[in-house]
Simulated assay, not measured.
Amino acid sequence: MALLKVLLLLLGLGVSVNFAVSLQKRIIGGHNCADTERQYHVRLEVTNGQTTTICGGSLIHPKWILTADTCWKTETGWFTRAIIKVHPRTAILGIFDIQGGPVVYNPDGWRHDIILLKLQRQVNDVPLAQLPDCTYRLKKDDIVQLAGEGATTTGPNNLHLSNVAPATHLQCVDMKVVEAHNFLLPYGRLFSASAPNKDVCYGDAGSAAVFNGKIYGVISPGVPVSACEQPVLIMDVCEYIGWIRARTGLK
């Protein structure tokens, strides 16, 4: 299963920083995130010295990032670093190294598409993302806010592109939950969301899905070939909340 996730990542779940600009229409249907929200958003840059891909993540603890397993390269020669304060753009970026490898969730003998990354040093000046109140579970038709720095353009025939510039400003988009509870290999425990003419794109994997100001989901890949074609797959954080708290020490 881990190999399948790696193959998905190689197909473009990150965004190359060596990009060619597309002049096609904007398709995400979102808007610039307010400067006062999502300051916990993290850009994960994964590089082997020649190729660099990006994913999103969320700082949930001064030393812990919550993201998607798809965002971690398992092959030798790849290095991952976390870029803090990518939003708002007026902030001074901070570059942090990851301590060791990811903490994975694999009680079933395969890795679910959710991981924790521990930073080598503590972040002291960034508001932390709030974990969900799982006494309330998402229901169909609830509205969640997704965000990311992935591409906001499409190619011919509305095809997703994997090699365009990251968004110049963190993008937010509202979507309606269309399926509240699901289990899908090779991802894990999910919910899905959709909205007319709105979508996530390559590079948005790992970013947070927010409800009532709290992280209820982590965007999983599952990006179809064409934009706005299928609901977005989102890892259900409440299904993993015990594991997250136990590994990070969060109450």
Rank of each mutant, 00 (worst) to 15 (best):
V173C: 12
V173M: 11
V173R: 07
V173I: 13
V173A: 08
D174E: 14
D174W: 09
D174P: 13
D174A: 13
D174N: 12
M175D: 06
K176Y: 04
K176D: 09
K176P: 04
K176F: 10
K176I: 03
V177G: 02
V177M: 05
V177H: 07
V177E: 00
V177P: 15
V177I: 09
V178D: 08
V178M: 08
V178I: 13
V178H: 10
E179Y: 14
E179A: 04
E179D: 10
E179F: 06
A180T: 02
A180E: 00
H181D: 15
H181I: 15
H181N: 15
H181R: 14
N182I: 11
F183C: 14
L184G: 11
L185M: 15
L185V: 13
L185H: 11
L185K: 08
P186T: 04
P186F: 05
P186R: 02
P186Q: 05
P186W: 02
G188E: 02
G188T: 10
R189D: 05
R189G: 08
R189L: 03
R189K: 13
R189E: 08
L190N: 04
L190I: 08
F191T: 00
F191D: 00
S192M: 09
S192I: 03
S192Y: 06
A193L: 03
A193T: 00
S194C: 04
S194P: 07
S194H: 07
S194A: 12
A195Q: 15
A195F: 06
A195R: 10
A195T: 10
P196T: 12
P196F: 12
N197E: 14
K198L: 02
K198E: 02
K198M: 07
K198V: 12
K198S: 10
D199C: 06
D199Y: 04
D199W: 06
D199I: 03
V200I: 14
V200C: 15
V200H: 14
V200Q: 13
V200S: 10
C201V: 04
C201H: 02
C201Q: 06
Y202D: 10
Y202T: 06
Y202A: 08
G203R: 00
G203I: 03
G203H: 01
G203Y: 05
D204I: 00
D204C: 11
D204V: 01
A205H: 02
A205I: 11
A205P: 11
A205E: 05
A205W: 01
A205K: 03
A205T: 10
